[in-house]
Design a protein around this nucleic acid. Sequence first.
DNA 1: TATAGTAGTTGTAAGATGCAAGTATATAAT
DNA 2: ATTATATACTTGCATCTTACAACTACTATA
Lengths: 149, 149
Amino acid sequence: MENTRALFQIMTRRFGLLNKNCCSVGGCDISLTQSHLLYEIDVQHNPSMQQIAETLGTDITTFSRQVQSLIKMNLVRKMPDPTDRRIFTLSLTAEGKMIATTIDQQMNDYLEEVFSYMTEFEKESVLRSVAILNEAMGKSSRCCAPVKG
Amino acid sequence: MENTRALFQIMTRRFGLLNKNCCSVGGCDISLTQSHLLYEIDVQHNPSMQQIAETLGTDITTFSRQVQSLIKMNLVRKMPDPTDRRIFTLSLTAEGKMIATTIDQQMNDYLEEVFSYMTEFEKESVLRSVAILNEAMGKSSRCCAPVKG
DNA sequence: TATAGTAGTTGTAAGATGCAAGTATATAAT
DNA sequence: ATTATATACTTGCATCTTACAACTACTATA
């Protein structure tokens, strides 16, 4: 195996393709960006728009429009914050929650399939390694800094 | 750590942000897509347009324009194949090679920084795990199939 | 030689993105 | 209390990205 970067380049491309292909639920096609958005709204507790936009590294104006389209699709709800009327908090509708859960399930299913090509020991090692990697990337000063998790 | 998907979701987002921020060389800004393109042309031996487009999972028409803009930037060269005149093979110009190498270096530097937050044992484990992951994803029937490596 | 298939390009139209500038609200300074 | 400054979000553009449809050019097959 050539260099370290090649390893990660291929891995990220594979996940990119995966997300590109695997985000449709029922009749409803969800883009990769939208799927990240739903995921993050689901995970964070009553987040503001700024919070999510920052987490995802998206410009707030772009994000504003992304939220609008998800509201039109009846997947996301936007509520004014009672303590600060500039702020809107985001949450998933029942349908949005269902879609998010389904995507989660699809991804987990896929990952299970991938793990089926490994030994149990390898699987454990991969899971532990990804956790280690996430933690280390979180400590890095350069990029990736704004991402929570 | 919640579920398996969360782990990979965060990892892929981090790499996405990384690529978004870390692909400028000198005055010349390279998009994520362009960086993948340069990488793949560099790695494959005199690939045709179809080959690279397929590897990257990009529509050939989109790809055709991406190549055009890289040619305009004098990073990529397009040569007609002598044995089949429908085919054009791609290669990097000296400048393109330089840019690709620099991006490679930047990514490796960044990865080294990330590894610096780990023990040597963890680093070994992470590298081995990514290789295992790539191989397993390559075997998967679902997505990611067209990607070489 | 006719037919079908493959490689790549261009027309067009839709979507994504982000900067500049705006509104509305909150906080700090005088 | 009033002004100035900062924050949260939206809208108007202008630009870039993307892909389907339709095209040209060439190759392979019948």
